[in-house]
Each structure stands twice: as C-alpha cells, then as structure tokens.
C-alpha cells in the first residue's frame, strides 16, 4: 500500500478512484505516564512517553484506514491528512483520511 500526501503517486498512473477512506482512534494516557509528565512539567522539554503514545495511536489509525482501502481493492491512498483534536480532558482523537485509488 502506497501512501502519499500529494495528489498523485509520483511516477505512476491512476487507474481507478474509490473515494475517501479514513481511520481514527481516541486515546487516553495512563496514570504512570501522567505522573511522569507532571514531573517533567517542572523542568520542561520533551515528554517522550506522550510522543510514543501519539505515534503508536497514529499508526493504529493509519492501519485502520489502510484496511478500509484494502477492502475496496485499492493499492494506494492519496492526499493523506492527519488531524488531532482533544475531545476531553486527557484524551485526544487522532484522525487520518485520504483518497483510495488503484494505480498501475
């Protein structure tokens, strides 16, 4: 499965369009990470736990999107976009969407 965030797959011709596919996940951080993060808040800097958490969640959302595209018979997703929103205290939604196509 080829993913791009431009309108084409560079070097390939688009044979068929399947419309929008999307994947999302809502994640909350767990207490241990939260405590570590509040310590880190005194010193400042990168919160590695959160970085990993969001990275993993985004991968999961992407996997869901790819699964949907695969079921449609697509082999590439164009114009992929990521969106993040905080839905409630301590939980964020990671949403990813794109256009499923078949390329040759």
């Amino acid at each position: 499965m080829i993913l791009t965030n431009v309108e084409t797959v560079p070097g390939k011709r688009i044979a068929e369009h399947f419309g929008v596919v999307s994947g999302s996940t809502v994640r909350a951080k767990h207490v241990g990470r939260d405590i570590m993060a509040s310590f880190k808040n005194i010193i400042g800097g990168e919160l590695k736990g959160y970085t990993e958490l969001l990275n993993d969640s985004r991968k999961q959302a992407t996997d869901r999107m790819m699964e949907q595209a695969r079921q449609l018979g697509a082999n590439a997703i164009l114009n992929v976009r990521f969106a993040t929103s905080s839905v409630a205290q301590g939980a964020s939604e990671l949403f990813v969407y794109g256009t499923a196509v078949r390329v040759e």
Partner: peptide, 11 residues
C-alpha cells in the same frame, strides 16, 4: 514513494 512523519510532544 513513502509517507513519512515525525512527532514531538513538549511542555
């Protein structure tokens, strides 16, 4: 072609 991404959380 490959979709690449990187993320950072800071406080």
């Amino acid at each position: 072609t490959m979709l690449v991404y990187g993320n950072v959380v800071v406080s």
